[in-house]
């Protein structure tokens, strides 16, 4: 093996350049990816659980997907969440190219508002379902549904809180290296939630309705 700069840290290198901030970014973002992989396992098990309860025994005579799911509202949620993901692209570009704190904060706010819209529709769906008897206490299937979708909603809410925290940080300490690194981790998180939602949209909503 040669002793070139690249082989000094033969990990999962994201960049070829070895500067201190770069190195820190690499470590932190890689660490965050690892954390998300662990989170992914949680969602994976919840998906499997949902599938395991999606049968007459799991439904236990309670209300089922046909009675409870409002695909129109789910479509609106999907649109809002994915648009929120697109809006975060503005944050990433702003951080990378012009480091304009105002612009970054604006795009952050737009992402947060779109995310909040998603949470709003999701919560109103939950309320609606509860009125129809679709409470998590009604059956094993509903327990798994509320847990899986609810956990995703909780993640989005935490994401919104994180965005608010980041806006506060940009205001108080400016767009420094640490904040930039955190913004790129938040980006990974935010897009990860889109990915999970695609799974939820297809497996949780489309499969039982088809």
């Amino acid at each position: 093996m040669s002793n070139t700069d690249n082989s000094l840290y033969p990990g999962l290198n994201l960049t070829g350049v070895q500067s201190e901030a770069n190195e820190k970014a690499e470590t932190n973002v890689f660490g965050f990816w690892v954390f998300l992989m662990s989170d992914l396992i949680i969602f994976g098990i919840l998906f499997a659980t949902y599938a395991a309860y999606l049968n007459p025994v799991g439904l236990a005579g309670g209300p089922g997907p046909q009675e409870l799911f409002d695909i129109k509202s789910v479509a609106i949620q999907t649109g809002l969440l994915l648009l929120g993901g697109v809006a975060y692209g503005g944050v990433s570009l702003g951080v990378k190219y012009d480091s304009a704190a105002k612009k970054v904060m604006l795009w952050l706010a737009i992402s947060a508002i779109l995310g909040a819209g998603f949470v709003f529709f999701e919560v109103s769906d939950f309320i609606d379902q509860a009125h129809k008897g679709g409470i998590p206490q009604a059956s094993g299937w509903l327990s798994s549904y509320w847990t899986l979708v609810g956990l995703h909603g909780l993640h989005v809410s935490v994401g919104i809180l994180w965005i608010i925290a980041m806006i506060t940080q940009i205001k108080t300490r400016g767009l420094d290296d640490t904040v930039k690194i955190r913004l790129s981790m938040l980006g990974v998180f935010w897009h990860f939630l889109d990915l999970i939602w695609v799974g939820i949209f297809s497996l949780v909503f489309l499969v039982p309705l088809s």
Binding site: T49, A52, Y53, V57, G58, L59, A60, G62, P136, Q137, A138, S139, G140, W141, L142, S143, S144, W146, T147
Partner: peptide, 17 residues
């Protein structure tokens, strides 16, 4: 969740397993 909120993941009845 089963214990605190009455969910039915692992209960005997109501589709728990």
């Amino acid at each position: 969740l089963d214990r605190y909120a009455g969910f039915h993941f692992f209960t005997n009845a109501a589709g728990g397993n």
